[in-house]
Amino acid sequence: MIAAFYLISVVLIVSAVLAVSLRNLIYCTLCASVVFISSAALFFLLKADFIGVVQILIYVGAVATLLLFAVMLTKNLVSRQYYVGQKRKWSYGIFTASAVLWVLIGSIRSQTNLAELVTADHQLSVVSLGKEMLTAFLLPFEVASLLLTAAMIGGIVIALEEKKKSS
């Protein structure tokens, strides 16, 4: 269990680094899906089975496929144009990111009472999760469904080709 956590964490961080730093967009997307799968694995380790499965279903099944589609639709297949140049100075980004990391790690270290927390030996059943979702969290649930509908319609409208122009 402990070994599994560290192994998954290493995979997670390495693939995240690769996902944002590789030049080939397809490899970036592939590494991103490894990030999604390994965070789902961490969810399983944390006994959040349902969320882990939802993570795989949505991130790997839908988001990664959408990303690949977008890469393919926006780059030319033949001319290998999907390589993105590396002429940019990365120092600002590294500086900002490491500053944020420093602040976050510092704040985690300053909270000494974190070590006292232990995992309770409980298993939340899917049934009680669903009951909670439709009672205490009914409003966010409905808002989320509204948001998804709006996003779906919005996505179609934005990506729709204007027919007047082409004719």
Binding site: I13, A16, A19, V20, S21, G93, I94, A97, L101, L104
Partner: peptide, 13 residues
């Protein structure tokens, strides 16, 4: 936290 910083780095650079 590390994951967040990596994501931030990617989004910025």
């Amino acid at each position: 936290a590390a994951l967040f910083s990596i994501g931030l780095f990617g989004a910025l650079t």
